[in-house]
Amino acid sequence: MKAHIGDRLILEGTHLGDGRRTAVVTALRHDDGSPPYEVRWLDDGRTTLIFPGPQAHVEPATSS
């Protein structure tokens, strides 16, 4: 998995009733875009460091 600053990290729920969570990548720890990522969660605004698992995928940032 590779990401860039501004990309969205989408985590799909793994259990019945779990919702999807979306975060924006705010910082990278590696120049090649590999995890871990610093992200800001859109649902609560918290910033965390994440090592995404198989339930996650990256959506590239849209340029406007």
Rank of each mutant, 00 (worst) to 15 (best):
G6E: 10
P60M: 00
A23T: 03
M1L: 14
P35C: 10
H4Y: 02
E12R: 07
K2S: 12
G53N: 04
G6H: 10
V25N: 06
D31E: 13
W41A: 07
L11C: 08
P54K: 10
H4P: 00
V24P: 04
I50H: 01
R8A: 12
P35E: 11
D43M: 06
I10D: 05
T22V: 15
H57S: 15
Q55N: 15
T62G: 13
R46V: 06
R21S: 14
P60V: 06
E38K: 11
E59I: 14
W41P: 08
D31Q: 11
A56P: 05
S34H: 11
T26C: 05
Y37S: 05
D44G: 11
L9W: 02
L9G: 05
I50G: 03
L9A: 07
P36N: 06
T14P: 01
V39A: 03
P54S: 13
A23S: 04
E38P: 00
V58P: 00
E12H: 09
P36G: 06
T47L: 02
R46H: 12
A23V: 01
V39W: 01
D18M: 08
Q55K: 11
K2D: 09
R20A: 11
E12Q: 10
F51R: 05
V58H: 01
T22I: 15
T62K: 14
S34C: 06
R21L: 11
D32N: 15
A56F: 00
R40T: 14
S64T: 14
P36Q: 06
A56L: 01
P52G: 12
K2E: 14
E12V: 03
Y37D: 03
T22H: 01
V39K: 04
S63E: 15
D44I: 04
Y37N: 04
T22K: 01
H15G: 10
G19Y: 07
L16H: 11
D43L: 07
H30E: 10
P52V: 03
T47V: 13
W41Y: 10
L11Y: 10
V39D: 01
R46C: 07
V24G: 02
R8Y: 13
R8D: 07
R21V: 07
R8V: 02
P60C: 00
L49M: 09
I50P: 00
V24R: 13
V25D: 03
M1G: 15
E12N: 09
G19R: 10
H15L: 14
G53E: 01
L28D: 05
D32P: 05
R46Q: 11
A27I: 03
P35W: 07
T48A: 09
R8E: 12
D7F: 08
H4A: 11
L11D: 02
M1C: 11
T48G: 00
V58A: 03
T22A: 03
P52I: 06
L49W: 06
L28I: 03
G17K: 04
D32F: 05
A27V: 04
M1Y: 09
D43R: 08
L11E: 11
A23I: 01
G17R: 06
W41F: 06
G45C: 00
I50D: 03
S64R: 14
